[in-house]
């Protein structure tokens, strides 16, 4: 596994393990994050874990101390990221809970189902079966509070994003490229929406606001429109517009 370290400005830096969606790379990402958390340094403010990269936000003023050996604060942070890469060990069975998530693919829930079926020349039933056929890894939480990037989907379902995002309701399940994901809150979204879950995935008041975490696994199961309406936790009237 190779890496590249580069600055994201003068107060953040990134260790990048390659522009690729890969389970073992994503496990290394978690290992680096865990190592940085355990062996933190003064001025480290936040760690952003993504598919194949770990970025750190830091306060250069707190990092810089008299006697700092490196020429710049970035050089010091780079050495910390290098250490974390070399010293971290992948935990094979880290945080690998499987979440079973109900999804309604019918009616108004699958906004873009008809479009997808037409473009991909696959029946709606087959799209659902393909989407249900896999256990997905949570590769990262990002973009929005609690938005989960899950992968990888069956190649037959791969489709481009919409040219312009549209407003989607909370719980919408979308696909884009090799990924599927759940919109935790009502917001503009560019993924093709094939279904919707009635469960709440982000609750600012909870001790753990995001239901899913990087490294978890997700398996979807189908529910009817009736079942969906019965257990809708986030009522449409409560969501923001």
């Amino acid at each position: 596994m190779s890496y590249k370290i580069y600055p994201l400005g003068d107060a953040a830096a990134c260790i990048d393990l390659g522009n690729i969606i890969d389970e073992s790379i994503n496990k290394k990402v978690i290992a680096i994050r865990n190592r940085l958390e355990r062996f933190s340094f003064d001025g480290l403010k936040d760690i952003i874990v993504a598919y194949s990269s770990v970025s750190v936000y830091y306060d250069p003023i707190l990092v810089k101390k008299p006697g700092l050996q490196q020429a710049t604060v970035f050089d010091f942070v780079r050495s910390k990221l290098e250490d974390a890469f070399h010293q971290s060990l992948i935990e094979e069975h880290g945080n690998s809970d499987i979440f079973k998530i109900p999804v309604c693919y019918s009616g108004a829930c699958g906004i873009d189902m008809a479009f997808l079926s037409k473009v991909k020349k696959i029946s709606k039933e087959e799209i659902i079966q393909l989407h249900l056929s896999k256990i997905y890894r949570v590769y990262m939480i990002g973009f929005l509070p609690g938005f989960s990037y899950l992968g990888k989907i069956d190649e037959k379902l791969e489709i481009a994003r919409k040219p312009k995002p549209i407003q989607v309701p909370a719980g919408s399940v979308g696909i884009a490229g090799k990924q599927t994901g759940i919109y935790p809150i009502a917001c503009p979204g560019g993924w093709q929406i094939i279904g919707r879950t009635p469960l709440k995935f982000f609750d600012p008041g909870a001790v753990m606001p995001s239901r899913l975490n990087i490294g978890n696994y997700v398996q979807f199961y189908e529910i009817s429109e009736e079942e969906f309406n019965d257990c809708l936790v986030v009522k449409d009237t409560e969501t923001k517009h």
Binding site: D46, I47, V49, Y57, P145, P209, S210, N213
Partner: peptide, 11 residues
């Protein structure tokens, strides 16, 4: 707000 990026929570 720093320290919660792993939940997608921006600063």
């Amino acid at each position: 707000r720093f320290g919660f990026s792993h939940w997608g929570i921006n600063p």
